[in-house]
Nucleic acid binder design. Structure first.
Lengths: 216, 216
DNA sequence: TGTACATCAGTGAACGCGCGTTCACTGATGTAC
DNA sequence: TGTACATCAGTGAACGCGCGTTCACTGATGTAC
């Protein structure tokens, strides 16, 4: 005789979409408590399921986190792609990609933490689902994406400098700003620039520096 | 009748230098296993002491980690200072500071992880030992140090741009390169630049970009 | 349309473990007389 | 120099807890006839 449903009430024995729900819960908890503070028991409870149910869909905790990281890389790549196809001058579009990166790191800290957590020196964990050579294939795709974006945006090239070189610098600057900000370590104050402004100016300097490099 | 001593053998009931030994052990384990994988029991065992002995010197785990972070900031500041007082042109010395930063992050991953671990949103933990306003006073000192180095190195200024602006950019780039490298996410390969080269070129572009900014 | 059965996604109880922390204690050290 | 005593840095046993994971199970679903 239940005609109504509570907001997150399951109707019945089977959840229906448990795998996706667990991924979302994991992402939320990682965002709130950090990767180390995230717990399978919490995720299961939030979803309304026994902790053991998780093992129908994942090999274990590590596999769930890896899946979160993978989704994160996919979403990040999508966002960067959207920025790349936007309007404006080449430099504007490229700068917008940087802003999309920062926005992703800010809005999806769970994904971001799962993606870029420094892993202890074992190298076994990711070898299973990767093609066997790179630790984070999706990450490399996102990076390749950035490189191609640079080449497409500046088809005249960088006067002998490999586009990947500039791509790494831009990525490192973005990552540095994003992580310092997430850790609350970006100096803040009334006269301090906003992080988006920071990245915009930095990317400008990096790209122009490269464009100018062989003129000097 | 023990005339010899085993390498790390304590002679007697009292350790003599337990606090320092614990800090060093913590730093080592954080480097090996990450901040989350570090355990008081491990540190105590390595030092050859009961876990409970730790509480004579620290309020708890968190306080030990905070002390490691503090020492890290102190050592980093010392290294930066040494680079700043070295020979060469202003730009060379400033670039050397960046290299010192990268070297510190590489050689002291335990310190680095303790210093820059993103903390969950509570804000209470560090308020006790700080003067009450900034989460990481030592970190701010290191940052102020960088700002002053920039001002001293380029006394002509940056044409209206605040030196702190460039300082943040340089710091973020260094931090980004250091953390990507530590996570094994820096694209590597035969044609790929070494991270020191990466930082050198990046800092050059950032500083020159700033010097040139109002000419454009 | 109805029944039998294979498949699969959950349950719930239990496990072993190792963590951070506490407590009453005891062994060593150093100082006063 | 020797003894009494306060101080302090360790011990070791125990704690409560919550974690990831396992196991035999059971309820629901969907397909074949």
């Amino acid at each position: 005789m239940r005609h109504w449903r509570a907001p997150f009430d399951r109707q019945g024995y089977h959840h229906g979409n448990l795998k996706e729900a667990l991924i979302e819960a994991a992402q939320r908890f990682i965002a709130e408590r950090g990767l180390g503070g995230f717990t399978l028991a919490d995720a299961a409870k939030l979803v309304g399921v026994t902790p053991a149910a998780l093992y129908r869909h994942f090999r274990g905790r590590e596999a769930l986190v890896a899946e979160v990281a993978f989704r994160g890389f996919t979403q990040l790549t999508e966002r960067l792609g959207r920025a790349l196809k936007s309007d404006g001058t080449p430099l504007e579009r490229f700068t917008r990609m940087g802003e999309a990166y920062l926005a992703f790191a800010e809005q999806e800290p769970g994904f971001y933490a799962a993606m870029f957590s420094a892993k202890p020196a074992d190298g076994e964990a990711c070898a299973a689902d990767s093609k066997g050579e790179k630790p984070f294939p999706a990450g490399d795709n996102a990076f390749d994406f950035l490189v191609h974006a640079l080449s497409d945006t500046f088809p005249e090239g960088f006067k002998g400098v490999d586009a990947r070189f500039i791509a790494i610098e831009v990525w490192a600057l973005s990552h540095g700003i994003a992580t310092l900000d997430a850790a609350g370590q970006l100096p803040k104050g009334p006269s301090m620039p906003d992080k988006y402004e920071l990245l915009r100016a930095g990317v400008l300097a990096l790209v122009h520096g490269a464009l100018r490099r062989s003129q000097t």
